[in-house]
Every structure is written in C-alpha cells, then in structure tokens.
Write a protein that binds this DNA or RNA. Structure first.
Lengths: 224, 224
DNA sequence: CGTCTCGTTGAACCCCATCAAAGCCGGTGG
DNA sequence: CCACCGGCTTTGATGGGGTTCAACGAGACG
C-alpha cells in the first residue's frame, strides 16, 4: 500500500515483457540525491524503477514538504498531468530506471501489451493513493509509523535468522514528510517500538521486525 | 484540486463526445443517501457524474472514515483496482450518472477517443490526489477548510450580486472526513471565517464568499 | 407542534509540534 | 590512524492546535 505501484509482483510481467518489446531506451542511472525529474518538467517518458529507490515530493511555497510516494523496484513513476510532471523525483540511493516513451503509452498507438500495463499501473497507483489518504487523514502517529514499517517489511523484507529485515534507505525526515509528521515524532515512535521489542535496529537504517503480529496490531488498532 | 477529476472543463469534451459514441448504457439515477457502488464490488462500469454529487469513502474497521473525493458534474468515478471497487460511492443529493462499460475502456479495444479520455481522466485523478496529499499531511485546520471552500467556490460557485455563492451539499461530518478533521473543528473554523467576514452563510449549506483574496491567503499561508 | 438529526458552542485534555541540546556516525584532512 | 567536523538521529521539556466530551440550538419533517 501507499507505494507507487503494488506489492504483488504478478506484474513483474510488465517489466519482463516490455524490456523485450521496446527497449529502444537505455536504462538510466541517477546517483543518490540527484533529481530524475522536477515538478513542471515536460513529460516525454515515464520510468520503471529497476534497482534502488526514489522519492516523489511536492513542496508548499513556505517550504513545507509532502512526500507523495517512494518508488522501489517494479514501481512505475512519473505519471504526468497535462503533459507535465506534478512532483519532483529524487534518488534516495543510486538508482537504475527503465524509461518508456510516454507518447506511445498514452495514446495506445504503440504496443498494446505495454499500453495495458501502463493503464493497470495507473489504476493501481490510484488505489494505493486512496489507502494512503486514510493513513494521512485518520491514523495516529503510532499507527502511521507501524503501517509504514509493515509495508516496507512486506515490500523489501528478507528473512534473516527467524526474523524479517529490511533497509530504510530514506532519512527520518523523509519518513516524516511521507506520513505527515515531524522527524522527532518519527524518531520517538521508532524508539518506542524498539524499546517494546517490536522491532530492532541495526544502525539507524536497518530494521529487524521481531514481532510482526504486534506491529500489525499497532498499525490497525492503536490510538496512542 | 482534490476533486475527483479536474476544475478545467476543457474535457467536457469527454462527456460530449462519448455520449454520442456509445450511449448504449442509459444514465442512472440514485437518490440522496443511496449507494452507487460499494468497496469490493466487481467493476463492470465506471461513471461520469452528470448532475448532483457523490462521495467516495473508505472505512477503517473501527469506524473511522476517510472521504477520498467528492464527485461533481464532469467527474469520473469508480476507477477499479484489480477489477474491484476500492471505495464506497454514495449519493449526496439525487444524482444522475452516465455509466460506461469498463472492459472496453480498459483494454483499448473500444472507441479510441473514449479510451484516451479514460486514460486522461485517470491521470488527472492521480494529479488531484497528489495535491490532496499535501493538504492532508501538511496543512492546518484553517488552511484545510479555506482550501476546501476555495476549491468548491471555483468548482460550483455562481455569481450572486457582487459575490460568488455555492451550495455545500455535504454535511459537516463529510467535510471533516474529507479533510482529516472532526465535525467540531470544521464547524468552529467555518464560524471563524463567518465572524471575520471572509464568508457568509445562508443556512448551513449555502456559502457566499465575501473576500476571496482573504480566503486564498488563509488557504495558503496561515498557521492557525 | 413535537421530534430528531445536524450544527454550533464551550471546557478540558492530550497528542504531537516546537524548541533545544546532546549523541552518533561517516567523511575528510592532517 | 586519529581528531575534527557537519549532518542526521535521538532524547528532553514545553506549549498549543485539535480532539474529545458535553450540552445547547436550529432547521427539517411529519
């Protein structure tokens, strides 16, 4: 949820099929901290994340920031509005992106398989954003952070011993701007989870989920 | 902003063109309070609002509710995820909806003009939701309510004397669930605007914008 | 005219933001 | 290799914006 595309990698099919169909466009790389595109840029291509991670952000004039989504491998990013990008896209790590010519995707004049995958990706994006609405509008800080960690674990987690572990490639400030909180609250909440043995940290950017059930309970019920 | 489709009715073209192209499906009506569809329903058609208004809602198990969007004339509602509706859709007033067979829209096998309009609507939906994220995540109560009133005025406002006036067809609770606030806060904030002569009310459900500039200022700068 | 739902207003509390400062880590250069 | 530096993270103390609980008012409808 609230990830650009879906957790279900059935649609890995998208990437596999399409690289064969029209990979006229070479994969691109962006170093950590670099922008892939910026709000207002004309959209001639959209991207599928191959490796690494990106963040999609929107700014208010006064500097307040909202992160719309993170993009992980398999996610499609860069859906345009009126031919323009509507967010900034910045690399969280060194990232590889597979570009697709947008005009052919949009019009349906190009490869129909590719086109359908594009439409499906857009529809999944809408659904994911709807879930994120509920989180931003109606969940407490604990619920938000727990939901976020749970999603990340599902998305990026790998078994290590008896537990699942995953990297948090983004900063606390990024998490805060994604969840509509402050860095301090995010940090405090994560510390709380650590102290109550729900998760463990290895450095600030590697999380081990010790009690997935507890995490899930906090994500969906708690009010503190 | 944060309306299902767009304020720009250039794409009124969609409705006009398509009613001629395949109006095999008759417009449907729903009375105030009735559901058009529910979360989980199989999607075989999506709708364009012709007259009246609907709300799209998502529920948490414990009863907390988030309104994803309101649908006004010209808006397309019912984008599916994995073939299912992902929100409830309920009529706020008596509403007329123009249904479109979804299968033909999705696959691109049907009318290409219609298909392209569908894709454009989905992309606008994504952009609108991105704006709403900023509001839910980063704006204060006053900013939220002012932004909402401003958008409604742009969308539904009609000149009355020297001012613009519009109907608030939804309840205070609906507005609260849309903005991520409580009914009390919405009511208090609206009262504040009324007392400071930014707006006037005629009953609880008709708003007159007295000072659009002030409303805009509150929507974008204020921190109270 | 009575009832009922919705809206408004008041008072108290609490979660989270804000302000502040101390760790911690990675990087850099001596 | 180590000491210093700068940014990020963590933790603490305090205050405020919005929720919560509660009661009153007002319009809608029979």
């Amino acid at each position: 949820m609230y990830v650009t595309i879906s957790n279900e990698h059935k649609d890995q099919a998208f990437y596999e099929q399409t690289t064969e169909t029209i990979s006229h466009l070479r994969p691109i790389r962006a170093a950590c901290g670099k922008h892939v595109f910026r709000e207002g840029d004309k959209v001639d291509r959209i991207y599928v994340v191959v490796s690494g991670a990106v963040k999609l952000t929107r700014l208010l004039e006064d500097g307040r920031r909202q992160i719309i989504a993170f993009g992980f491998p398999g996610d499609m990013v860069g859906f345009p509005s009126h031919g323009r990008h509507h967010t900034d896209c910045e690399a969280l790590t060194t990232v590889q992106l597979e570009p697709y010519q947008f005009s052919s995707l949009e019009s349906g004049t190009g490869d129909p398989v590719l086109h359908k995958a594009f439409v499906q990706a857009a529809l999944r994006e809408i659904a994911a954003m709807q879930d994120h609405f509920v989180m931003l509008g109606r969940k407490s800080a604990s619920e938000k952070v727990a939901s976020f960690l749970e999603t990340m674990a599902q998305r990026l987690g790998e078994p290590v011993g008896n537990y699942r572990q995953f990297p948090l490639s983004m900063s606390r400030a990024d998490i805060a701007d994604f969840l509509g909180l402050t860095t301090e609250t995010v940090s405090r909440t994560i510390s709380l989870f650590r102290k109550s043995q729900v998760i463990a940290l290895d450095g600030a950017h590697t999380v081990v989920v010790l009690r997935p059930d507890a995490l899930h309970a906090i994500a969906n019920r708690d009010r503190g």
